[in-house]
């Protein structure tokens, strides 16, 4: 009997150790923003750096709790995810919109593209399913930072399948870029401790 008790205790400890940990909202934000955890991917093409960050529903939930935003908290849905694409120059000096421009008016054309055309060049795959891009926002940081941001959301169908974000920046003429978040990464995201 004594041996059985120890066996049950050992197995329970093993189960707790292997299951997803629960983190406080602040810890959750830190965890999600840690590159090592696989939710941040990067691609550099000819002086332009694209950093793609996947924010799962836990991120919004954590933010809502920290900011005490009951409206945001009430609207949190497990399936909701968002992507932030940070576009910046590798030299950290040149304004991203002016990267490699030849004509003066080119940056305005780029702004127009990011606001209206970029959405058509994004594709999100969840396993074999193609997901719809919702609420794309282009955040122009003017001259505060050389970077530019694009945010968009989507609803994940199955977290056991990987999420692949594919896009092409026609303003810079990068060609197709792909960023894959594997199912191992997606299923390892901790829960929020409330």
């Amino acid at each position: 009997m004594q041996v059985n008790k120890f066996l049950v205790l050992g197995l329970s400890l093993l189960f707790i150790g292997c299951s997803k940990s629960n983190l406080s909202p602040k810890e959750m934000i830190t965890w999600l923003e840690d590159k090592e955890n696989g939710l941040i991917k990067q691609e550099i093409i000819d002086g332009a750096k694209y950093t793609v960050t996947l924010h799962p529903s836990q991120y919004l939930e954590a933010r809502a709790i920290i900011e005490n935003d009951s409206f945001m908290l009430a609207n949190c849905n497990d399936q909701n995810c968002s992507i932030i694409v940070k576009m910046e120059p590798t030299d950290n000096q040149t304004q991203f919109l002016k990267l490699g421009v030849v004509q003066k008016e080119e940056p305005f054309g780029r702004i127009n593209y990011y606001m209206n055309g970029f959405q058509n060049d994004i594709k999100i795959l969840n396993g074999d399913d193609t997901l719809t891009v919702e609420n794309l926002i282009y955040e122009r940081l003017y001259n505060v930072s050389p970077a530019q941001l694009i945010l968009f959301g989507f609803k994940v169908k199955n977290f056991n399948n990987s999420i692949k974000v594919i896009f092409e920046d026609r303003a810079i003429n990068t060609g197709k870029m792909q960023f894959e978040f594997s199912s191992d990464v997606l299923t390892s995201i901790p829960r929020i401790k409330i």
Partner: peptide, 17 residues
């Protein structure tokens, strides 16, 4: 020409990394 330029830009960056 455009495709070739894109391919080599990408390969050069991957070679650096």
């Amino acid at each position: 020409d455009e495709y070739n330029a894109q391919i080599w830009k990408r390969l050069n960056q991957y070679a650096i990394e």
